[in-house]
Simulated scan of single mutants.
Amino acid sequence: MNPFIRDIILEHKTEIMERWSKEIKKFRSDDSLQNISDTMYENTNQEFGNKLILTVQTEGKEYHDDLIQFAERLIQLGWPLNYITRGLQEFRKIIVESLSETGENYCKSIEFFQEIESWIDDIVNLLVNQYSGSWENTVFLQKMALKELSAPLIPVFQNISVMPLIGTIDTERAKLIMENLLEGVIEHRSQVVLIDITGVPVVDTMVAHHIIQASEAVRLVGAKCILVGIRPEIAQTIVNLGIDLGKFPTKSTLKKGIEAALEITKKQIVDLEV
């Protein structure tokens, strides 16, 4: 940064901070900031302003690291990105207005505006990239965790397994379901597989198509598939859409499905005499 601009900003930093603090308080009405206490909001505003002034006093990696740590803390606390971007936009406007009012000719020149723009843009890019990278990493980790927990094939009796499906089924998840299903059938030597859709909120044509494909794949590896968890509204949707599920048995509940599977595998549950 131009030494003259640095000196004049530091000379007027008290006035700049007062004006900026007053303006940033107006963001408090945003819905995304309603869950933050007044004390934390005030303290964070003060810290944010101090970090911005610090970028005037220091250069390079030192202030970069300091800003990144500040941004990471805000991300962990759930602060929205627009708090950062709006705060920086307001800071830029106040810097320009405050220094223009000093009467210094240089503060009205094109070079001055370009210097301020470049300085604030560098900070914006640094913090936005930090936010983007952190959220992308969070989404990736959550996605991997969901994959690990998604669609397990659970053996419940000898030769009988259950695959509970929960949540929306898209094409990517349907592929994962198919892989887990076929691997599980072979690993557990399942003769009957119960696909439980009790936790699937919507069964449309695409979801039904994926289920039918899974059933056919199970049949090809020598096992039988029973679809369970057919709620009344799901049954009505299936009928209205004209989806043909007649190629494999369906049951309304998991209990009825297990009873059917026991019958197919020639097993029965017997009460022991006490």
Rank of each mutant, 00 (worst) to 15 (best):
L182K: 09
E179M: 11
E172R: 07
E115V: 11
I177S: 01
S118R: 14
V162T: 09
S161N: 08
I123V: 15
I120N: 07
L146I: 12
P155M: 09
N180T: 13
E187M: 06
L165V: 06
K143Q: 15
W135Y: 13
Q158Y: 08
G167E: 08
F140Y: 06
Q191W: 01
R173C: 03
G167F: 03
I177K: 00
S134F: 00
L153I: 15
E117L: 13
E136C: 07
S150V: 01
D196F: 05
L176K: 09
D122K: 12
E179L: 11
E115Q: 15
S132N: 11
F113G: 00
T168P: 00
V128A: 09
E136Y: 11
Q114M: 00
E172M: 10
M178C: 03
S161W: 08
I154H: 01
I120W: 11
K175M: 03
I197T: 06
Q130V: 02
N125I: 12
L181N: 10
N180K: 15
W135L: 13
D170E: 00
W119P: 06
S118T: 15
I186L: 10
E172V: 12
I177G: 04
N125K: 11
S132Q: 14
E148Q: 14
W135I: 14
T198E: 10
A151R: 02
V192W: 00
D170P: 04
L176W: 06
L141F: 00
I166D: 08
T138Q: 14
N129Y: 13
Y131G: 00
F140S: 11
D122I: 01
H188W: 06
S132H: 07
S190P: 11
M178N: 10
V192E: 02
V128H: 09
L127T: 13
L141S: 04
L181G: 07
T198A: 04
L165I: 11
N137V: 08
T138E: 15
S118E: 15
L176T: 12
V185H: 07
Q142Y: 10
S161D: 09
L146Q: 05
A151H: 02
T138H: 12
G167M: 06
L146M: 13
S190R: 06
D122Q: 12
E183T: 14
L126S: 12
V202I: 15
N137G: 11
L149P: 07
L146F: 02
L176F: 04
E115N: 14
V162E: 09
V139R: 02
T138R: 14
V202T: 10
A174W: 07
K147P: 01
S132E: 13
L141M: 04
G184Q: 06
K175Q: 13
M144A: 13
K143E: 15
W119E: 08
V162N: 04
E148A: 13
D170G: 03
V185G: 05
I123S: 08
W119V: 07
H188R: 05
L165T: 05
K143T: 15
D122C: 04
I169T: 07
G199V: 01
F157S: 09
I154R: 02
D122F: 10
L126K: 11
Q114S: 02
